[in-house]
Structures are given as C-alpha cells and as structure tokens.
C-alpha cells in the first residue's frame, strides 16, 4: 500500500515530526511504500541542515535525510511555507538574493500541488501536526 505523510510542525518543539518519523519507519518495516512526505507550516523547519542538537539527543533532520537515502523517499518542503521561514535551496537563495541556503540532504522544495498530488496518488494520507 502507498502512504502519504504530512508533517505540520517543526523538529523538537512538538512531537509531530517524531511521531511521523516513527510511523514512517513502521510503514517501511511492514513492506509498504511511502509515496511522499510533505512538510508544511512550521514542518518546513525539518528541512534545514543547520540544526545542531545536543549529541545525546536524536537528530531529527538527519534521521529524515537518512530515511530518504536508504529508502528513496521523496521529502518535499512547501516552497511558500519555506520562504516565509527561511528554508532555501541553492536556486531559491539565488532567486531571492540571499547569501546562503540551508536545505538538508534528501529534501527538495516544491509547491503545494505536491501535497494534493500525494493525496490523489497515495492510498492513505496521514497528517501529523499540532
């Protein structure tokens, strides 16, 4: 079965991203497919590579990146929500005249249509938020 996952809160502040990640891992462990994880609202903050959590804590951003690398999962950060909150990739940074970008490995920035498309293409869509 194909799953879509929506994450609406950033890392650490709220448990939503943790629950979504553990849910995603369980989906994969059962041999199902994750069509896409879509990050919206403050959830876009899961996609910055500049977080430096304490060493004795989980690294939420890296965890998502590693899951994407290992299982080829499409991690999509909403462009409009990302722009508001300062999450940029190289081309977005260039386009908006910013001096740096911060998108983490495995994440890509795209439009909200990717969320609606996930709802259409996936057999199930589960929302994690606050």
């Amino acid at each position: 079965m194909k799953f879509g996952i929506m994450v609406n809160e950033g890392p650490y502040q709220h448990q939503a991203s943790d629950t979504a990640y553990l849910f995603a891992k369980a989906v994969l462990a059962k041999g199902h497919e994750i069509y896409r994880v879509f990050f919206y609202h403050d959830g876009v903050n899961n996609g910055t590579r500049l977080t430096v959590p304490p060493q004795d804590d989980r690294n939420i951003v890296n965890r998502w990146s590693e899951l994407a690398a290992k299982h080829g999962i499409d991690l999509v950060v909403c462009v409009a929500a990302a722009q508001r909150r300062g999450i940029l990739d190289e081309s977005e940074a260039k386009r908006h005249g910013r001096d740096a970008n911060n998108i983490a490995a495995g994440f890509r920035i795209s439009g909200l249509g990717q969320l609606v498309e996930a709802g259409i293409q996936a057999d199930r869509l589960v929302v994690f938020g606050d």
Binding site: N8, Y40, H41, L112, G113, V116, E117, I120
Partner: peptide, 19 residues
C-alpha cells in the same frame, strides 16, 4: 496562528486538480 491562512493556500491549489 498561521494554520487558517496556510490551509486556505492549499485549498486554492487543490482547485487546479479537479478533485
């Protein structure tokens, strides 16, 4: 909070998909 506004943004995009 921003939820209502960003929710509306998704609604507007969804219109393009004929759902």
């Amino acid at each position: 909070t921003i939820y209502a506004l960003e929710s509306l943004e998704v609604v507007l995009i969804s219109a393009a998909f004929d759902q």
